[in-house]
Design a protein around this nucleic acid. Structure first.
Length: 185
DNA sequence: CACCAGGAATGTA
DNA sequence: TACATTCATGGT
């Protein structure tokens, strides 16, 4: 039934092709920068980082917070996000991709600056693990069409994952389509 | 002028 | 567990 809803959204809006990025690390950075901000502002920050040739893990880790803060300023919360960006980058460079999705999720949630949505975005869009991402749009989408009585984040997540085939590309596109829907409603 | 955007941490009860 | 507050820029 969720699959039918997905097909309907896909037909209506077309493929969204998330996550837009030129490199894998750019996705990692985007996950932090987009927290509670419009993607348009994130693009400005990413553009600044690219122009400064800073979109590389080693450079972010060796750069002063002050410089990074100025570069990512357009996307807001820039002091916090600078710290968070270094935290996730430190984890990213030492990442062991052989670990199970459940283990990786626990590790991500222990990083300051990585909450449930960011952890699932990392798993899905960076590591290509079937971990459905729940955001404010998704909750509103479920409520609007009365799909379930879910309340907590984990309940929403379980609802999608247990009613859909475990397909990474499906998870990616579905989440992107729900966001697209949310922007028009 | 207020309000919100592709959240998360911290504090309170 | 369930809320409230803080972080901060840019668009409407």
């Amino acid at each position: 039934m969720l699959k039918k809803i997905f097909n309907k959204l896909l037909k209506q809006y077309g493929k969204q092709n998330w996550w837009p990025a030129e490199t894998e690390y750019e996705i990692v950075v985007g996950i932090i920068l987009t927290q509670n901000t419009t993607w348009k502002n994130v693009e400005k920050a990413l553009s600044n980082l690219k122009r400064a040739h800073m979109l590389e893990p080693k450079k972010i880790l060796s750069c002063s917070n002050q410089i990074i803060e100025q570069l990512i300023k357009p996307c807001g919360f820039y002091k916090q996000k600078t710290v968070y960006l270094k935290n996730i980058t430190r984890y990213y460079v030492d990442l062991d991709r052989n670990k199970s999705t459940a283990t990786l999720r626990k590790e991500l949630l222990n990083i300051k600056g990585i909450g449930k949505e960011s952890a699932d975005s990392f798993l899905l869009y960076v590591l290509n693990r079937p971990s459905f991402v729940i955001d404010a749009y998704t909750k509103r989408f479920v409520k609007t069409f009365k799909l379930c009585e879910c309340k907590t984040y984990e309940e929403f997540k379980h609802f999608f994952e247990s009613n859909l085939p475990s397909d990474v590309e499906l998870y990616k596109e579905f989440h992107a389509l729900i966001v697209r829907w949310g922007k028009e409603n």
